[in-house]
Amino acid sequence: MKEEIICAGFGGQGIMFLGKILALAGMKENKYVSWMPSYGAEVRGGTAHSMVVISDKEIASPIVSHPTTAIVMNQPSLDKFLPKTKAQGLVIVNTSLAKVNSPRKDLEVLEIPATEMAASLGNIKIANMIVLGVYLAKKKLLNLESALQSLKETLAEQFLELNISALKAGFNL
């Protein structure tokens, strides 16, 4: 098993954090993991992405050119990474901010209005946790529990409840 994920969106959507929780959860399940940020002059509103590799074997290259899963949170990211996704790959799209318009029939595309769902839960910033929940439920590669534990170890107390509620909401969709 070798899962190569690209998480992408606007700066400020928690793209790096989403990737980090994936890597941490993988590490907790004793898999080989790597996490690589795009680290240009990222600012809120600009585009950002992180590459996560989760594998049963030692990871040769941490660089992902063609992901097996793309989690895209805005239109520029969808346009950039959907075409690069491997055949039979998974694309999770935040349809609140992106519209799927691709001729490819060899992908599984999950359309989730994540930002709107997050808003209804009280904060648009937790759209990242909703798509993480969707990913965990769909791919069944990592346990929900590992992700929850990673959140508990990473987040300050006051943000925990909101993030967990979003993660569970996505997972139970």
Partner: peptide, 9 residues
Amino acid sequence: GLLGQMMEP
């Protein structure tokens, strides 16, 4: 820069 920025266990 890659080595500096990438995370691994």
